[in-house]
Amino acid sequence: MSEETMKAARDERRTATMARIAGALEGTRAKTAEVRDATPCILVRPDELTDVLTRLKERGGFDTVTFVTAVDLAPATPRFEVVHQLYSIAHTDRVRVKTAVTEEAASVPSCIALWPGAAYMERECFDMFGVRFDGHAGLKRLLMPEGYIYHPLRKDFPHQGIEPDRLYREWDAERRREFDPEAAR
């Protein structure tokens, strides 16, 4: 296959994807833009997110969610960008949905009604960035231990952590107190 044929095939695929997205989002205020890696990218507000994701899944054929994550753009405002990337198994193409949220109101609607498998990714995103997902029943820490109070992937978090041994030391002190109350006193 020659270079021109391949390029033509790529362009055709991209045009078809963009047309499918435009058809699915007809009547919403969501804007579609193409980003550097040629994945179509949709910018939405938090209150439109559920509607856009539902349309993309049901009308656009984007039937799986590849990942849910966030980007910390500090010191810019709004600070966070929640990113949903969807994939269509039938058409083998992708679309990215970006939702800008501020630090004060860092929450977006959960999409576990559409994709139950997104629950873990939303938990990880909450753990690492502190973005809340409304409607998620079990939104608690996934990677960091329970009781941890920081969100490590935020830009203002030092990479060596803030008192990384605090939870262990508290547990250790409690354990020693149980084991030998006299010595701990």
């Binding site: 490590p152 978090f157 060596q160 952590g161 990384p164």
Partner: peptide
Amino acid sequence: DSYAVVQGIDS
């Protein structure tokens, strides 16, 4: 050299 890792188990 990370917030998550024990910097030497001798601690």
